[in-house]
Computed example of a mutant assay.
Amino acid sequence: MSKRTNKNISRRKALQSGILLTLGGLSSTVIASEISTFPSTQKIKKDLPFRISLNTSTLIYYKLAVDQQIEMVAKAGFDGIELWMRDIMAYLDKGGTAKELRLLLETNGLLLENIIGFSKWCSDIEEERDEAIVQLTKEMKIISEMGGKFIAAPVQGISSIDPAKYGEYAKRYRRILELGESTGVTPIIELWGMGALNKVADCAQIAIASGHPNARILLDFYHVYRGGNSWDTVDILNGAILPVIHMNDYPASPAREALKDGDRVLPGEGVCDYNKIIPKLYKAGFRGGFSVELFNKGYWESMDANTMLKESFENSYKVISDAMNS
């Protein structure tokens, strides 16, 4: 049995046993940033046809400022980063500028893959949709100044998809796509396995029906599985225009229908069939970024931020490399 396998089994036991500390009682020594030596990843990444990136949800518990996030993610060897708009706004509110963040990204060699934001652009309430346009206009301007080109657009404001309203949803999506034309920032309609828009087919229908050439879909390994979707037909999509896919894994237990965001695990530590899925995405034209997105309390309680980054990169590199060589 390999050292990697032993480590994975030990971690699963720890996560499942409930012996880890609660969030409220977490020792300050875990939160504290430690100096770590990361592997020299800049060379080995070049043999992959994809970027390995990080969604900073993975670091959310450590309460790092956005400039710290950028520097640490770059140091860990990632190609790109997905930042949260609320972290960016906190930085700006303290006197920072979007141009400073752009320079920091460029200096550290990180591609700004996408921004995570939340607006009720698809609400059934017209006033909420109008408010979303105001919000997105502001956010897209900031993203553009940072050198970004995409913002996530999960369906907010509705609790379920009404099949009779596909045309209306498409019009709402087209509205924010047109808003993005003036800023160069494209909203990517996002699949949520537990949300209203939990079917890949529904995402595709709304995106196609929008009739807009910039329509894009944001997939996620966990959310595809959690929503009861199949990867067998994912190659129907044009992978070449998908800029980023969220990278994570999911355990065999609890059952799919009972899974929550916090149940996501590091790539390779669950049951996701990467050896089947990643080559299929490659054949469908995908060459974008696999961006690690986790919300696992057990990891936060047992690892400092640097270790979390190291594990995220190494696990992702391994599963992607193994899948492309399978």
Rank of each mutant, 00 (worst) to 15 (best):
K7F: 06
K13C: 15
Q16A: 12
S17W: 00
L20H: 11
S27G: 15
S27K: 14
S36Y: 12
S40C: 11
T41Q: 05
K46D: 10
R51T: 10
S53Y: 07
L54R: 02
Q69C: 14
Q69V: 12
E71W: 08
E71T: 12
G77S: 01
M89R: 00
M89S: 00
Y91V: 07
G96D: 05
K99W: 15
E100M: 11
T107P: 07
L110S: 00
L111N: 03
L112T: 13
L112V: 09
E113G: 00
G117M: 11
G117F: 10
S119C: 09
I125Q: 01
E126C: 05
R129C: 13
T137K: 05
K138C: 13
K138T: 15
S144T: 14
G147N: 06
A153R: 02
G157Y: 06
I158W: 04
I158E: 07
S159D: 10
P163D: 05
Y169E: 04
K171W: 13
K171D: 13
Y173Q: 04
I176W: 06
V185W: 00
P187M: 03
I188F: 03
N198E: 03
V200D: 06
A201H: 00
D202M: 01
Q205P: 09
A209E: 15
P213K: 08
R216L: 10
R216W: 01
H223K: 05
N229G: 12
D232F: 04
D232S: 10
I236V: 14
G239E: 10
A252R: 04
E257N: 11
K260W: 15
L266F: 07
L266I: 08
G268P: 01
E269H: 05
G270D: 01
G270H: 06
V271I: 11
D273G: 01
Y274D: 06
N275S: 15
N275H: 13
Y282L: 13
K283C: 02
A284S: 13
A284W: 11
G285L: 14
G285W: 11
G285N: 07
F286A: 08
R287D: 03
E293W: 05
L294G: 02
F295R: 00
K297Y: 15
G298Q: 04
Y299C: 13
D304R: 04
K310V: 05
Y317D: 07
K318P: 01
V319P: 01
D322L: 08
S326D: 09
